[in-house]
Design a protein around this nucleic acid. Structure first.
Length: 213
DNA sequence: TGCCAGGCCCTCTTTAGGGCCTT
């Protein structure tokens, strides 16, 4: 396992193409499955949040009025992650859309590949009744470090979930090195093809004499 | 007035529809 950035956005809505903007971003850096660094900031994109969003996240228009400009926050976030650090998010399609859109506004490239803990959870835990982040955190009794629907607390929970997924891949499926490239391949694998995919991975581990935990 | 997305998965499917997941 190597360096991975786990990200979570709070936003004004679901889609940047419809004018929605990010209001908060948090990033946890995990190395060898352990959180080693964190970035978190509210951001002022010059938009107002609805009462629904304030009720959901606790983020108010007064808080955003005091926040640094969105483009400055995003440039700092991009520097924090680095161009070569792969990323992970819970429902990555959502966070990736805002990562790309907000960085584009700030004039920064967003080349990082995104793996998705929702897709990975559906592959590995098909019996789970819900794949919501909070439900999975409860199911695996992972630690909660703050209020749900705040960016840093959700990024921390997603990081914990990623650690659990990597742990289960090693201990239950014999995957010696569940790195980001493996996670990307796994989430693209259909459920029907999953057993063969895992067998192939286990054979590769055995052939390279990777010790199983 | 009411609604507004996108990608993935499952099934009573594949020339489709509905649910999940994110704010």
């Amino acid at each position: 396992m190597s360096r991975i950035a786990i990200i979570d956005f709070e936003t004004t809505g679901m889609t940047p193409n419809a004018g929605d903007r990010a209001t908060e971003v948090a990033i946890v850096i995990a190395e060898q499955g352990v959180a080693v660094d964190r970035f978190q900031s509210l951001m002022n994109a010059g938009v107002r949040v609805s009462s629904f969003i304030t009720q959901l996240t606790g983020i108010t228009n007064a808080m955003l009025a005091q926040a640094p400009p969105a483009d400055a926050v995003m440039r700092e976030a991009a520097r924090f992650v680095g161009q070569h650090t792969p990323m992970v998010a819970h429902n990555a399609a959502f966070d990736r859309r805002f990562w790309v859109a907000e960085l584009e506004r700030a004039g920064v490239a967003a080349p990082q590949p995104f793996a998705c803990t929702v897709l990975l959870s559906r592959r590995l835990y098909p019996e789970a009744p819900s794949h919501r982040l909070g439900a999975l955190v409860d199911r695996f009794q992972l630690p909660r470090t703050g209020r749900a629907h705040r960016a840093l607390a959700d990024a921390e929970m997603a990081s914990e979930l990623l650690g659990r997924i990597q742990h289960d891949l090693r201990t239950r499926h014999g995957v010696g090195n569940p790195d980001h490239a493996f996670l990307m391949a796994l989430q693209r694998c259909s459920r029907a093809a999953l057993p063969a995919f895992m067998r192939a991975q286990q054979s590769r581990c055995s052939a390279t004499s990777s010790p199983l935990p």
